[in-house]
């Protein structure tokens, strides 16, 4: 088998001016925009097509989303995700400043914050399930669980990738620090995108 290296892993491609990995992650994020865009479109369609939003329960008065969902917990989760975004970008900056221990500290903090987000979400979901509010309950809960569930899966994916980069993947720092730094930047782009999606989900689902 040939041991030819994959070209433009570190150096920019002469046509795009970017390493191939970075263009790849941006193209992946473009597809993610369309995935969440389709679900946001469903949300707009369900909402504009409903006589009341959230739908009124039989025998109950009309309620706002902020009365149905837990706004303080979601605000906490927003702050948690924003904090995880700065720790992620600080992990990348630490590598640029040649400090692996600081990188590990910041990336470890990013993972912990992501886990905190999931734990808070677990409490939110279990409270809804205890009340008998499942996705099948009505269109509001259907789109709420679909959007937040898919977003939660993206958080899980980010945790797995970041955990790999923190542990086994960090061996690359010794042999090719520039490529490893690029990998962290790409993982960061994904993580910031997950934060960006939540920035729109939070007001759309909880506050409006």
């Amino acid at each position: 088998m040939s041991d030819t290296a994959i070209p433009y892993m570190v150096k920019p491609h002469p046509v795009t001016g970017l390493p191939n990995g970075k263009l790849g992650i941006w193209l992946f994020l473009a597809s993610e925009v369309m995935l969440f865009g389709a679900l946001f479109s469903s949300y707009v369609l369900l909402r504009t097509g409903a006589a009341h939003w959230p739908p009124i329960e039989p025998g109950e008065a009309a309620q706002l989303s902020s009365q149905i969902l837990n706004v303080p917990l979601a605000t906490l989760n927003t702050a948690v995700l924003i904090t995880s975004s700065i720790t992620m970008v600080m992990a990348w900056a630490s590598l640029k400043l040649n400090s692996l221990p600081r990188f590990k500290l910041y990336l470890g903090a990013t993972i912990v914050l992501a886990l905190v987000f999931l734990v808070v979400k677990y409490f939110e979901y279990s409270h809804k399930f205890e009340q008998g509010h499942y996705p099948s309950h009505n269109n509001f809960y259907a789109i709420y669980f679909t959007l937040t569930g898919l977003h939660g899966l993206h958080i899980v994916g980010g945790i797995l990738v970041n955990f790999y980069l923190l542990t086994f993947g960090s061996k690359l720092w010794k042999t090719d620090p520039e490529q490893f730094t690029n990998r962290i930047e790409n993982a960061g782009l994904y993580w910031h995108f997950v934060d960006l999606v939540w920035i729109f989900l939070f007001p759309a689902l909880y506050l409006l």
């Binding site: 473009a30 925009v33 369309m34 865009g37 389709a38 946001f40 479109s41 469903s42 707009v44 369609l45 504009t48």
Partner: peptide, 14 residues
């Protein structure tokens, strides 16, 4: 390009 298609998918079904 992504943003243009995002707007299309967001508003066309409405």
């Amino acid at each position: 390009l992504t943003f243009a298609f995002f707007l299309l998918v967001l508003f066309l079904p409405s």
